[in-house]
């Protein structure tokens, strides 16, 4: 399962490097937070899949709302003059490590 995900991820990277789209420099920070949230959702989904608790609707909706919410939070923080994106970085970073740890344990158990 996770091999398939990795494969798709690499294909996505290749497509992304070929596509001639560049983000405006102003939004780079917000999209970076969005990418972090998306990564978190993906690892969360893989973890849930391994725990047999995977729900397609929750996964897709979580992916979209987490990404948009994180980018929006960063944007709001900038408008307020508050480094609110740090909250997103800390939360998603911590969850990312947690999910990775659980996935690692499952893989170790499996093989």
């Amino acid at each position: 399962m996770w091999l398939l995900g990795l494969f798709c991820f690499i294909i996505g990277l290749i497509i992304g490097f070929q596509v001639p789209i560049l983000l405006p420099a102003v939004y780079v920070k917000y999209t970076a937070i969005g990418v972090l949230a998306a990564l978190d959702s993906v690892f969360g989904g893989i973890r849930a899949y391994m725990e047999d608790a995977f729900d397609n609707v929750i996964f897709i909706s979580g992916f979209i709302t987490n990404t948009l919410l994180a980018a929006g939070l960063a944007y709001l923080g900038d408008r307020l003059g508050l480094e609110l994106y740090l909250a997103a970085v800390v939360v998603f970073g911590a969850r990312l490590f947690q999910n990775l740890g659980i996935i690692r344990r499952y893989l170790l158990k499996k093989y």
Binding site: G5, L6, F9, V28, A32, V35, G45
Partner: peptide, 23 residues
């Protein structure tokens, strides 16, 4: 579930690549 995870992985890959190039 597998298909959606694959699609999301694809999207994340594209997002990261575009982000890389932009930065």
């Amino acid at each position: 579930g597998q298909v959606s995870i694959m699609i999301v992985c694809l999207i994340v890959g594209i997002m990261i690549a575009v982000q890389f190039r932009t930065t």
